[in-house]
Design a protein around this nucleic acid. Structure first.
Lengths: 332, 332
DNA sequence: GATGACACTGAAAACGATTTCATACACGCT
DNA sequence: AGCGTGTATGAAATCGTTTTCAGTGTCATC
């Protein structure tokens, strides 16, 4: 037997409306306020959030849709989003899409059924295009991946510049045959690829990029293949933390030395990158800022639904470690 | 203007009750079923989950309360829980307590307001005791941390045996002065400590344990301190993945060699442990099984509220790597 | 002393679904 | 023909809140 606001009202000798007002900050005399508070304590009343949401038509809930929360990048973003949301009195529904467009569509539909206030979304490439056409009952802020699809708020890394920076560093260290591994699921991979190509060409070098699934396994297989075939480049850049890990695993398994047998650079300054091999050179993304900013954009949008679209581009920081040490032998 | 079940009913030429039945699998003639489906499509109707939950009194939602989702151990458990829950048609509300008992209490209250079906909870030591006394409107399955508090379903690692196994391995490798670092927030730390002490005593060695905050930072500070003071042991075991990382960081920063300057063993077979230094010897917890089993216990409890309490104890696996290599010099 | 403004309160409607209850109809059986 | 059984349907009640609406009482103002 669950106790409702009516029970509290009876216990306090007031109407349910007054209880509601006392709890929700409405105009209530100090006397009745006290009576209600006492009655709430006495009865052990807990408001029913479903009823509240139904009647008030405020879900006080946002959706956070990402590829996979076990990817440390998204974990960090998610914590920042949750903390900001909590401070704003909002709950968060977390959804993992595994880069599957069907799951993305399903979760967006779920968000409609939950009548969420807004959504923060890291879409696959396939969905970015669909999003441009579709219209939802809630604002959406894209995160990490925006593409050129206008019309949506977004907060992303300056992927082009970051990849450029990484390649420039490798070139300055004396590397020439530099391969790039890029994820094939998101626009992020494309942008990083473009930055890589631009920097290579500026240095008079020939780009050699591979688009693969953005997973540890795919990158590991690719790298293993190189060493088996004897086609490994002098250096490789990996376009996210998972792929970076795959490359390192393959090298250790094959007994190869970093950076002597192959130099490595990548994205996402996850804590293990400091510990693996001689330390890995990476682009550090401001993950917490990314999450906070997304939340801020969402709140601003709720305040001003008709304000112009805003795309926030954050800069990365290049953290140099041993995995891109200077070439020592006779560089080809 | 949002469209409700009444609009669909009007469009289909039936009553709202029939629409509800058509959508929910009630007895409806094939003819009306088709009409309703067409009307749903035509109107773009999306059921309002708050209304549904209010009336049906089924939230179809469970709570998952853990210390910190950015701890890879909890990340892995959470994904397993979410996948199982999703298959069972349940949504998951994720809560991070940061090992703070106040947050734990607050989230448990939130779960009551959400009228969740059940809760999976990794409590701090402080809350384990409180839980034994308290009573909630939903079943709770404890995970990772149960203590001796009976009366609650739980799924945990055999912490005592695992710590014992780790120490036995170190002893077999020739180490004698073995220190243990244990987390002070959970019962898990205590159980692992007890296993450590038992194994040390069985080997005729003197235990030397430290209880500290279960964080990278605390373990790093402690280890740095040892090397500064020259009091580092021959080997250390760290009671979770975060503390293990702290130890490794401190050693690398101080320019110390693993295992020559100090051997390391720990808990949680996170992917980076294979990559750091010579590879780290760890206890692998069956994280996915842990999450799945917790979900299963919860469902069983919902089916049979009065069945006897069940505590499921899973065994760990010892993964031996280079960080506990055999002692080479003249062991003292 | 009438009047308007203001602050507080309760009765009742509303939110959007599911569920209960009553009814209508078809069917098989005696 | 009469009757029980079972299935499909709609009207209306219901879930637990918030919100609207209509007072009521107090107070300052003219």
């Amino acid at each position: 037997m669950t106790i409702s606001i009516k029970d509290v009202a009876r216990a306090a000798g007031v109407s349910p409306a007054t209880v509601s007002r006392a709890l929700g900050g409405g105009p209530v005399s100090a006397e009745l306020q006290a009576q209600v508070e006492a009655a709430v304590k006495a009865t052990g009343y807990r408001p029913n959030l479903s009823a509240r949401r139904l009647r008030s038509r405020h879900s006080q809930t946002i959706g956070l849709i990402v590829a996979d929360i076990s990817n440390p990048f998204f974990t960090a973003v998610a914590r920042a989003v949750e903390d900001s949301a909590y401070k704003a009195g909002l709950r968060v529904i977390l959804c993992n899409t595994d880069e599957n467009p069907q799951k993305e569509a399903m979760y967006l539909q779920l968000m409609e059924e939950e009548r969420v206030t807004g959504v923060i979304f890291a879409p696959t490439r396939a969905s970015v295009d669909k999003l441009a056409r579709a219209t939802y009952n809630f604002p959406i802020v894209l995160i990490d991946r925006a593409g050129r699809a206008g019309g949506r708020d977004a907060v992303v890394l300056d992927n082009f510049a970051a990849a450029d920076m990484l390649v420039a560093h490798l070139v300055a260290q004396g590397y020439r045959r530099i391969t790039g591994l890029f994820g094939n699921a998101s626009t992020t991979g494309i942008e990083r690829h473009d930055g890589y190509v631009a920097a290579m060409q500026r240095a008079g070098l020939t780009p050699a990029a591979r688009f693969i699934a953005p997973t540890v396994e795919a990158a590991e297989a690719e790298t293993r293949h190189w060493f088996k075939q004897g086609t490994a480049p002098e250096a490789v850049i990996a376009s996210n933390g998972l792929m970076l890990m795959g490359v390192v695993r393959a090298m250790l398994a094959a007994g190869k030395k970093i950076p002597e047998d192959m130099a490595i650079a990548g994205f996402d300054n996850e804590s293990w990158t400091e510990l693996a091999g001689p330390g890995l050179t990476v682009i550090e993304q401001p993950v917490a800022d990314l999450g906070r900013a997304a939340m801020q954009l969402l709140m601003d949008r709720l305040d001003a639904p008709d304000a112009p679209m805003r795309k926030l581009v954050l800069g990365g920081r290049c953290v140099v470690r041993g995995s891109t040490g200077r070439v020592t032998g006779a560089a080809g």
